[in-house]
């Protein structure tokens, strides 16, 4: 277990170094004249990777928060969609405000609605002991239905978050462009990875949360209120998924479309598994999935028509299947996830 973890981090570090070197070479030397190398390593490909990864990172963090306390969350997709729609409604109804407050209001509402979706999932699966996978499915259908029912197709959101260049750091060639010239929610997502990692493994909250996901009865017998932690973390997770939706509307696309999450919630779930329920692992996996989306985009831009575009679009989904098939046996999910916790003998 520990060994495989170390090996994977070596591989990850090697990959990062490889990409940094190639990025420098391709973007600063004549090597960049090669179309294929540009597709793989251009600044725009790397930028796109990060942008495509943000919702996946946030979604995977949502999954980690829920599953580390023992609640399976397949409804990330629905939470994200609800967050996106909420952000859109909030933004369009405050179009007359100055841009920044209006956008931040959108973020706040996305967080709120995401949190409410999390609460609903928690109530269904804890209070009413619904199968957690089915509860997640309910959220997905519900979010799709409600957003379609309430969607005003004439509404237009005006403006979205722009990039903020971090003074100094953004001047670094290539890296500055890719990493330090981004809109605020992108930075937020990256910071959250660190925060949640520290939270999970170095704080009281994290220790208790993980205990609830691994051995709820052990947590209960030392006075930890298992279901309270499960409620809390599922709501927090929902907020993160809501933020992912807010990112799509307020930072990436600028508008809402029906079903605009397009499976990102599910890919997040795969990133979570792929990353072994660790924030940094999930981020790595999310970047990998984001990269496949970037490739698809770059191939189209480069005018590569030898492969039909539908097949290129399949890449992220196929990679997800391959990742889930290849890694499930090697990772170790929280032991108690998906199981209803009741104090022994106190049912009904």
């Amino acid at each position: 277990m520990q060994r495989t973890l170390r090996v994977t981090s070596y591989i990850a570090i090697a990959l990062v170094i490889f990409f940094v070197v190639m990025a420098f070479l391709v973007n600063l030397t004549p090597l960049g004249e090669n179309t294929w190398l540009r597709v793989f390593f251009s600044v725009s490909a790397l930028n796109f990777t990060l942008r495509a990864s943000v919702p996946l990172i946030l979604g995977a963090l949502c999954g980690i928060l829920c599953e580390r306390t023992g609640i399976i969350n397949i409804g990330i997709e629905g939470m994200m969609l609800a967050g996106a729609f909420a952000a859109f409604v909030a933004k369009t109804s405050t179009n007359h405000w100055p841009l920044m407050p209006s956008l931040l209001f959108g973020v706040a509402i996305a967080l709120l609605v995401g949190g409410l979706m999390g609460l609903l999932h928690a109530i269904f699966s804890i209070r009413y002991r619904m199968d957690q996978i089915i509860s997640g499915t309910v959220l997905i259908i519900l979010a799709g239905g409600v957003s379609a029912y309430l969607f005003d197709r004439n509404a237009v959101a005006q403006g979205k978050f722009g990039a903020i260049a971090i003074p100094g750091l953004s001047q670094i060639p290539v890296l500055g462009e890719v990493l330090f010239t981004n809109p605020p929610l992108t930075y937020t997502a990256l910071i959250l990875v660190v925060v949640i990692h520290i939270g999970l493994f170095y704080t009281r909250w994290g220790l208790r949360s993980r205990a609830c996901g691994e051995h709820p009865r052990a947590a209960d017998t030392v006075g930890v209120n298992v279901n309270r932690f499960r409620y809390m973390n599922t709501v927090l997770g929902g907020m993160l998924a809501g933020l992912a939706g807010g990112f799509l509307v307020l930072e990436a696309v600028g508008q809402f479309q029906e079903g605009m999450t397009a499976g990102r919630g599910f890919i997040s779930l795969a990133a979570m598994i792929f990353g072994n329920w660790m924030p940094f692992g999930a981020m790595g996996a999310a970047l990998l999935f984001g990269y496949t989306q970037a490739l698809q985009n770059e191939l189209l831009l480069a005018g590569v028509t030898t492969v039909p575009r539908q097949f290129v679009s399949m890449i992220p989904y196929v990679v997800t299947i391959v990742a889930v098939s290849g890694f499930v046996g090697r990772v170790r999910p929280p032991a108690a996830e998906g199981k209803v916790y009741e104090t022994e003998g106190e049912s009904e």
Binding site: I72, D131, Q132, I133, I134, I273, V328, G329, V331, R332, P333, P334, A335, E337, G338, K339
Partner: peptide, 9 residues
């Protein structure tokens, strides 16, 4: 019928 017993085997 309970499905949600985790993603592992």
């Amino acid at each position: 019928t309970v499905f949600s017993t985790g993603w592992g085997r």
